[in-house]
Each structure stands twice: as structure tokens, then as C-alpha cells.
Write a protein that binds this DNA or RNA. Structure first.
Lengths: 228, 228
DNA sequence: TGATGTGAACCCATTCACAGCC
DNA sequence: GGCTGTGAATGGGTTCACATCA
């Protein structure tokens, strides 16, 4: 109920910062040193005014008449997003999705590393997933404390998601990414972000249906994610 | 440029319909026949006025003083989202993510079925993934036409995503779900929806960082998804 | 001159509050 | 009496346009 001292960066802008970041990293690897809001906008498929406003939330890091320094801006976005450190992550659920996430190179490439994968299914325990050995869910708290984990990923079936969330919270995890199609119940102060793959497909199928009936192009969209 | 005859349902509401749908299905399986906006709101973790407004976009399917009929509302949402049919889907990329998606039971449980998985890597071709045999990317167009596929999933590495999108569009697919961290370039009229797992984590890490500095709870959020 | 940074206007989404119907 | 459906008010996000400064 008391959400007084607001986060600085507006939600919508926050969601675009990682996009700019990736583009900046790509530009840097092409030895580009300067970029204008116009160019960034083009590459991110948004408009230039939005880019400038988004970046202005970080501070005034551009140079009028010139543009933005790629290196410097990269650093500033990373710092703001907390990506100047590597976050240890634990995955609950070693099924198909859990395995895919653990193996997903994109995760380790962008400042995260998996320090544990747990499951309740004894047939999965002991197997190697993404370079980490799967352990029993009972050891979750131990891993979280030993490795100072503050971000957990729920990749269990829907019916075990709440239980997984409870375990994570009890173990001291402060932020949860939920891949199960469930609305999680967590204490005030714990961040939850939800990605529901089937939900995304359902929305896409609506667009496709629209395409077939009239030839209307739907505008930009967004996926729900809740925090509590 | 010409996006005149707007889609009926506002973007934000559209993103919540699948959530209500799932809840309704769960209620029905518990033999619940009626539900109020208050109850739905509770279960979906949103507020009751929002539920009513969202549902009002579908039509006036509630009964004043009583609530909504679970069966009937379920049917109406499914119809609106185009889920009264089973959509054939093709997956491009048979890596970890592609495999996880193909095996993901949530997809088939909710009105979609995988009719093809293609890859360019010859070592993957012929293997069985989610009940479907992986074929060469060259056969994509053939599969799309034979099975009347209109939704494609890109689960390739970033550097092959644009190529995959081009192939899908050329084959006649009208809607694309993109799991690669790339802004795709597609012709006007093709729907693109993007899910970037690392981006989600980056946003979550920002929340977590906020949690540690001040104890502010971030509000609701959303993930980008673009269409063109 | 050229591109940033930003007040102001606009537009969409959320919320309120109550009229309308069972 | 209870709950839906919805105009009206509010608030946040996007876009415009221009003052500002290298």
C-alpha cells in the first residue's frame, strides 16, 4: 500500500534500456565510437525523441550537436541496470525449460551466471545441466546462502510454482522470474516478473486472426509482468 | 504509416485476456459456474474495475447483480483470441530453446501444435524433438504450405534471426514470435512479437538493485514486443 | 550548424463512482 | 441489495517542437 519514494526510471523507459544497451555493445564491437539519438532510434525501431527522453533519465550523458559516446553510454546503462556485476542465479525446475535456460548462452553472456539448478524429481538429480549439477530442492536454501543468490528462476510446472516461490522467498531470494503460468503470491517487497510463453502465443494468434479478417496492423505491445 | 481502422481491443487489455482465460479454465475444472469481477480480479492480481472494463471490450456478457458465467465467458474469450481452433506452428532453430519450446506441454495444452522444427545444422536434422522430426531449413516453405502454417517461432542464435524471419515471411507466415535478441526487419503487415529472456533478467536485476539500495517496491511492468 | 534535453500537448490506460439492471 | 457496465477524471507515456549549447 505504501509505495511512496518512486523508482527513478519510468517502467516503460526501463524496458527499453536493455535494448539500447545491446545495440551499443554491437556498435562498439564494430568500432563505432559515437551515435546519435536518430541512429539509435533507427536500430531500436523506436522514435528519436523517445530515445533522448529515455536516456535523459540516466543523466545528461550526450553532447549537443554531436551525439552520445558509445563506450560511456554503455557503461552508464550497465551501471543503472546493475549489470556491472555478475548476478548469481538459481533455477528451480530441471525440466525442458529449466534445462534450456541453464544452457542458454544469452544468460551468461549478459552478466548472469547459474550457480544452482534444483528439482524434486530424483531421476533428474545428479545430472549435469548447463555445467551445473542438479541437486535436490531441499538444498535450495543452502545454495542461496552459500552463493549469495538474490535472483531465482521458477521453471516448474504450474502446480509447483507457488511452492517454489515460497521456498525461494524463505531462502532469502529477493527477485523472482516466473516462467510458470501462475499468479504468484509473495510477500511485499519481493519482485516478481512473469514470462508466460503460451500467453505470448495466444496474443500473437489474435494478431494473426486480425490479419486474416481485416488487414489491420496491430501496434506495439507488451507482456505482463507483476511485482509485489 | 497507415494504421487507420484500429483493432478493437486495446493492447493492454488484450494482454490480460489470456490471464483471465486461464483462471476461468481452472475455475471450470473446479466446477465453479459463476464468477464476479471481484473474484476474477483477486485471482488475476488486478483491480475489479479493470476486469470489468477489459471484459466489456468483448461485449456485455455479464449479468448485473450476479456476475459472469464461467463457461460462456471462457468461450467468448477463446473466440476473440482465435483459440477455438488449433494453430499449426513451425519452429526455426532446434537448439536448446527450440527443443524446450517443442517439448513444452503448455503450448499444446493451449490450442497450438508444432508441425515442424527446422535447423541448418546437419547434426540436428533427423532427431526427434517434441514428437516432430527436425528437418533442414530448406524445407521450411514446403512445411508452411503443406500444413497451412501462419505462426512461426524463431529460436535461432541472434546472427541467424533475420535470415530466419526472411524465410518465414517468404514462405507465407504472417506472425512471428521472436526469441532471438534482435530487432527484426519484416514487411508491413507481418506481426512480430519478441520475447527476450536476457532482457527480462536485466530488468529484474534492476529491481533487485533497487531493493538493496532503498526498500522501494517497483510497480507493474511490461516487456516490449513490436509489430510491423 | 547540428543534435541534445525538455516543457507542453496529446493520447492511451487505469481508476473512480454511480447509473442501470437482475 | 448486489454486481455489471461505463462516462468522467486522473495519471503516465509518447510525441512535438524548440530553447540550448558544443
Amino acid at each position: 500500500m505504501s509505495d511512496s519514494p518512486r523508482r527513478r526510471i519510468p517502467e516503460a523507459a526501463l524496458g527499453r534500456l536493455p535494448v539500447y544497451l545491446r545495440i551499443l555493445v554491437d556498435l562498439a564491437s564494430d568500432s563505432v565510437t559515437r551515435v546519435s539519438s536518430e541512429q539509435l532510434a533507427e536500430l531500436a525501431a523506436v522514435n528519436a525523441a523517445k530515445v533522448r527522453k529515455d536516456l535523459s533519465y540516466l543523466g545528461t550523458y550526450g553532447t549537443r550537436g554531436v551525439g552520445y559516446d558509445v563506450q560511456f553510454l554503455t557503461y552508464q546503462i550497465q551501471r543503472e541496470l546493475g549489470l556491472n556485476q555478475s548476478w548469481p542465479i538459481v533455477i528451480v525446475g530441471a525440466g525442458n525449460l529449466g534445462q534450456a535456460l541453464a544452457n542458454f548462452s544469452g544468460i551468461s553472456e549478459r552478466g548472469f551466471h547459474i550457480v544452482g539448478v534444483v528439482d524434486k524429481d530424483s531421476s533428474k538429480i545428479g545430472s549435469l545441466v548447463g555445467g551445473v549439477r542438479v541437486t535436490h530442492a531441499d538444498e535450495l536454501a543452502q545454495i542461496v546462502q552459500a552463493k549469495s543468490v538474490s535472483i531465482g528462476i521458477i521453471a516448474t510446472p504450474a502446480q509447483h510454482a507457488q511452492e517454489a516461490a515460497d521456498s525461494l522467498v524463505r531462502a532469502g531470494v529477493g527477485s523472482i522470474m516466473n516462467f510458470a503460468p501462475t499468479v504468484l503470491n509473495v510477500p511485499e517487497g519481493v519482485n516478481v516478473r512473469k514470462v508466460d510463453l503460451a500467453l505470448e502465443l495466444q496474443i500473437l494468434s489474435y494478431y494473426e486472426q486480425c490479419r486474416n479478417t481485416s488487414n489491420v496492423t496491430p501496434a506495439d505491445t507488451a507482456t505482463g509482468a507483476v511485482s509485489a
